[in-house]
């Protein structure tokens, strides 16, 4: 389950005058009072569009996210790892489906949203456009990518939109094993042969920066997050979540005996969640290559084309199955009517 701080509220269309300031004000009051908004409730068009985009992107990320890990299901090195990885990737399909269902309550059909993904119109998390090159990547993805995702997702359980919040509660509950599964793989590699430990370090080197990018652009550059915050879709800023992630990551890395590939990583004293030598503060990362992030989002990551091509192929090759099921259902309905 993965979200990314790339969803911007749609502020293009101003609310119709007829909708009136009254409805909008009443809506905001309900949100401020922590009331949940439900599917049939009145909501500003921009709220609906923002959520449709965010939830569907979130769903697409789950579905595309199956591919890099699916790449290793058939090569998992033990039967226990094979079963857990398959269960995890399968969960991602499930989470994609919960989210499509939540998004559909806002009015667009899953098929329309999925077609947008296949046509390249819709975005998904940048992280899945990186390749999985060794078994250690299964550890790194579970530990880092799912770890980052959890930071993003837990606040979404309190999102103002009821169907999204409920889907996220289910997702978070199911997903609690994903990060542990990944970290366990890393522990096994780091306690293994020198070759295995090198494999783990290499995976960390490749996934660290893309994972920091997963939280989205720095707060200063994210022009629309104010509106999402007011609507209580977003509860923490990109930078806040990134900070939380990093503070948790550093001691976990130390435990593994691995090194984060960040020459500028440093500890700053102050009020903070992280501790070092008994002092409180925060870990600070070096500068993130935002140009890479934008390029990957724009379709120029190492695997963008392959990921979409794989889903397009599956969709195209599965068309006859969907047609057959529809044709059979139509025949059965007709027979029932005739009987």
């Amino acid at each position: 389950m993965y979200t990314q701080g790339l969803s911007n509220p749609d502020t293009a269309a101003p609310a119709k005058a007829a909708e009136g300031a009254g409805l909008a004000a009443r809506f905001q009051e309900r949100v401020d009072a922590e009331e949940r908004i439900e599917a049939n409730d009145w909501m500003p068009d921009a709220y609906r569009r923002t959520l449709t985009r965010q939830i569907s992107q979130h769903a697409h990320s789950e579905i595309i996210g199956m591919l890099p890990e699916g790449n290793w299901v058939t090569r998992a090195p033990t039967l226990r790892r094979k079963a857990t990885l398959l269960a995890k990737v399968q969960d991602e399909a499930g989470h994609g489906l919960y989210l499509y269902a939540a998004a559909e309550t806002l009015g667009r059909s899953r098929e329309e949203m999925f077609d947008d993904l296949l046509s390249g119109k819709a975005k998904y998390s940048s992280i899945f456009n990186y390749p999985t090159l060794t078994w250690a990547d299964m550890g790194a993805i579970g530990w880092l990518v799912d770890g980052a995702a959890i930071m993003n997702q837990i606040p979404l359980c309190r999102c103002s939109y009821g169907p999204y919040a409920r889907a996220m509660i289910r997702v978070c509950k199911e997903e609690s094993f994903h990060q542990r599964q990944g970290y366990e793989i890393m522990v096994a590699l780091c306690r293994g042969t020198p070759e295995q430990k090198a494999m783990a370090q290499d995976a960390l080197n490749r996934w660290y920066w893309p994972c920091l990018m997963m939280f989205g652009p720095p707060d200063g550059d994210s022009t629309h997050s104010d509106q999402s915050t007011r609507w209580k879709i977003k509860r923490f800023s990109n930078d806040e979540l990134r900070q939380k992630f990093l503070d948790a990551l550093v001691p976990q890395t130390e435990f593994l005996g691995l090194t984060l590939p960040d020459a500028d990583l440093r500890f700053e004293l102050g009020e903070g969640d992280a501790t070092k030598d008994g002092a409180r503060g925060h870990w600070r990362h070096g500068s993130i290559n935002w140009d890479e992030f934008r390029q990957v989002l724009a379709g120029n990551g190492p695997c963008n084309r392959e990921r979409i091509a794989a889903r397009r192929r599956a969709h195209k090759e599965g068309a006859w199955v969907r047609e057959a099921a529809a044709a059979y259902a139509a025949k059965q309905a007709k027979q029932k009517l005739a009987a």
Partner: peptide
């Protein structure tokens, strides 16, 4: 398990995964 990510219908990927997991469990 080779079907994961490639199914004709997302709901069926769940089903194929479940059957695969059952069988791998039996094997173990």
């Amino acid at each position: 398990s080779e079907w994961i990510g490639l199914g004709p219908i997302l709901e069926e990927e769940m089903a194929l995964g479940n059957i695969g997991l059952d069988l791998i469990g039996q094997a173990r």
